[in-house]
């Protein structure tokens, strides 16, 4: 028998079997007879393999068409006999139903702000450095020009692990590690958790996140610090944000400044970051030639910026991880 005839025969008998089929059991038998592993189609393909190469293209196509036709017809019959077999058929007509209730994932607001700050500074060539949260007194205080028994230590209430080991009170310890391991130029920001031994309330927590920056080279000036931070403030809070630099005091910078931005809603200035020219004593402490090198440093609290930006009134919300809070970001 020629292959053409066999194909036609199979088509005819399959159609008649299918039209007589009334139950799913019948249907399963039809599947085994025609489409099963030892079914008629499989046998046909075995025969096809024995054909001479010249005839293969012609019959290859015909056989594939046959198999596809049969499969489609079979599936249609299956749907007729068993309308629920393919899942959501019963819903597909009502497009007013709600969509899948997908979980509402989010990045933590502090992560979002940190990431935004990082990318603003990365866009002007600052790399990101990290360092230890537990450090010795030297890296957290002394190297930063805060000797023991200096009243400036009162500015930061410190958690101690032992008399000479502290939970860092700022990420400035990273600046010291960085400069100890690298010669100028330095153009880095450091970020991470810092700890303060303060009573927990809506406006203060025992820890917060900080981003600090450090630039050391032969020329960076106070004017350049102003320019850099103005660029940052405009990127972060929007073009035309009203801001001011006012003199302040930090042991590790001199001259020091605090930056305020104007809050229209509250009709007042809000402090957002501290900065200053790196104190020459700090440069000397890490072995830099402070006659040749100079630069500036700045630092800000992420929680504070997030609170301003998102209108959050209680700092503790950041660490409570209430889903109703997190899902809003």
């Amino acid at each position: 028998m020629s292959l053409d005839n066999t194909i036609k025969e199979i088509q005819t008998s399959f159609r008649s079997d299918l039209s007589n089929c009334k139950t799913t059991t019948d249907l399963e038998n039809i599947r085994i007879t025609y489409l099963g592993r030892k079914g008629k189609i499989t046998i046909l393909f075995d025969d096809f393999a024995k054909l001479p190469g010249s005839e293969k293209p012609k019959y290859g196509k015909a056989l594939n068409v046959l198999k596809t036709d049969l499969t489609i017809a079979f599936n249609q019959k299956m749907n007729e006999l068993n309308p629920n077999s393919s899942g959501s058929n019963n819903n597909s007509a009502d497009f007013s139903l709600p969509g899948y209730d997908l979980p509402k994932g989010s990045l933590h607001p502090l992560e979002q702000i940190t990431s935004e700050i990082k990318s603003i500074f990365q866009s002007v060539g600052f790399s990101v450095a990290y360092g230890p949260e537990i450090d010795d007194d030297y890296h957290n205080f002394e190297a930063l020009n805060v000797p023991k028994h200096h009243p400036a230590r009162d500015m930061q209430d410190t958690f101690f692990i032992d008399p000479n080991t502290v939970l860092r009170t700022h990420t400035s310890n990273v600046q010291i590690h960085l400069m100890e391991n690298q010669d100028p130029p330095i153009r880095h920001i450091c970020c991470g958790r810092v700890f303060r031994n303060e009573a927990v309330s809506y406006k203060s927590f025992c820890l917060f996140n900080q981003v600090e920056g450090l630039v050391v080279n032969e020329s960076s000036s106070f004017a350049e610090m102003k320019g850099t931070l103005e660029y940052f403030v405009e990127e972060m809070f929007g073009k035309g944000t009203k801001m001011r630099f006012r003199p302040s005091y930090f042991p590790f910078t001199e001259p020091s400044a605090e930056v305020d931005i104007w809050n229209d809603k509250l009709n007042q200035w809000m402090e957002i970051l501290g900065c200053g020219m790196v104190n020459p004593n700090v440069l000397a402490n890490v072995g830099y030639d402070n006659k040749k090198y100079q630069g500036f440093a700045f630092g800000m609290g992420i929680e504070r910026i997030a609170m301003i930006k998102y209108g959050i009134k209680d700092i503790r919300l950041f660490y409570q991880n209430d889903k109703r809070f997190l899902e809003q970001f």
């Binding site: 002007v124 004017a223 350049e224 102003k226 850099t228």
Partner: peptide
């Protein structure tokens, strides 16, 4: 401090971040 003009010349120090 408000009388010190800001400088934006820092682009000369750009480096791979």
């Amino acid at each position: 401090y408000e009388n010190i003009k800001s400088s934006y010349s820092f682009s000369s120090q750009m480096q791979y971040a």
